[in-house]
């Protein structure tokens, strides 16, 4: 028994496939979705989406968004999403430094710019953390916690 999972960000399809379980960072707490889940519509916070299929596990970073859960399908509309395997740690690190630097220089009166930069910083922190934790690591995503 499997449930279909589709993760899309505004500029591309990030993942689609039939999976056994999806773990989402819902805004009211993490939730594990199994097949035949009752319909739920939830917003997502910054965090990780974990997916397990027969023999594979995938981890994705997600920078907020909305998830629609139906008994046979989970649709994630992410503001930005990325497979942890695709994260380039060196680039993520420079992006984080750039964001942190820009954040110290921006005028606090400019609220929009400040919030955008803060979000960028949070995003890069999240990506880095995820990459460090799950890159090339063979241990199970699900068992460790």
């Amino acid at each position: 028994m499997s449930i279909r999972c589709e993760i899309v960000s505004q500029d591309r399809m990030v993942y689609e496939g039939d999976v056994d379980i999806v773990v989402l960072p819902g805004s009211d707490g993490e939730m594990g979705i199994l097949p035949h889940h009752s319909p739920v519509l939830t917003t997502l916070k910054f965090g990780l989406i974990k997916i397990r299929t027969n023999n594979e596990e995938h981890v994705f970073t997600v920078a907020g968004g909305v998830a629609e859960i139906q008994p046979t399908i989970v649709t994630v509309l992410a503001d930005a999403a990325e497979n942890v395997k695709e994260i380039d740690v060196a680039r993520a690190e420079t992006a984080r430094q750039r964001a942190a630097e820009a954040l110290t220089q921006v005028k606090t009166e400019d609220l929009d710019a400040y919030l955008a930069l803060e979000a960028a910083l949070r995003r890069s922190n999240l990506r880095l953390e995820a990459a460090k934790r799950y890159h090339d690591v063979k241990r199970s995503v699900f068992k460790e916690e």
Binding site: G26, D28, T42
Partner: peptide, 30 residues
């Protein structure tokens, strides 16, 4: 063939208004 699932009412997390506030303006912008 899937229509049996559409009438089922959603459970909203957080509240329904908040989610729609989030998704509809974003969809319009898209």
């Amino acid at each position: 063939e899937n229509s049996h699932r559409i009438p089922a009412a959603y459970q909203y997390e957080p509240a329904e208004g908040e989610i729609l506030d989030e998704i509809i303006p974003r969809f319009t912008a898209l």
